[in-house]
């Protein structure tokens, strides 16, 4: 094989590779995620996590907030 023919073939293989990369054929497809879903390992404040865990009604929200502040004070 001559060098010129090799260069043309290489260019074709390289272009083909880039097309494969662009279309994502080189890997296993990424998992589809719900855009509204929250990430479980993200940063959240103690107030938020405690409130979500307790699932209280609006009436007891103030009491819960006070309780959460108390928890924060104890932890710190």
């Amino acid at each position: 094989m001559t060098l010129n023919r090799f260069l043309v073939l290489s260019l074709f293989i390289f272009s083909l590779g880039i097309v494969i990369l662009y279309n994502g054929l080189n890997r296993v497809p990424l998992r589809q995620i719900d855009p509204n879903a929250t990430h479980k390992h993200g940063h959240s404040s103690l107030l938020q996590s405690e409130a979500v865990a307790n699932k209280t009604t609006t009436a007891s929200a103030t009491a819960l907030r006070l309780k959460n502040i108390d928890i924060i004070q104890k932890r710190s």
């Binding site: 590779g17 880039i18 990369l21 890997r27 998992r31 995620i33």
Partner: peptide
Amino acid sequence: PICTGHTGDGNPMQCHYTYQAEFIITL
């Protein structure tokens, strides 16, 4: 295959980008 997960903000994880780069290098 590498993992197919996402980060918290919905973007692919860094391993995805690593292996995209690996593909070009091995090409």
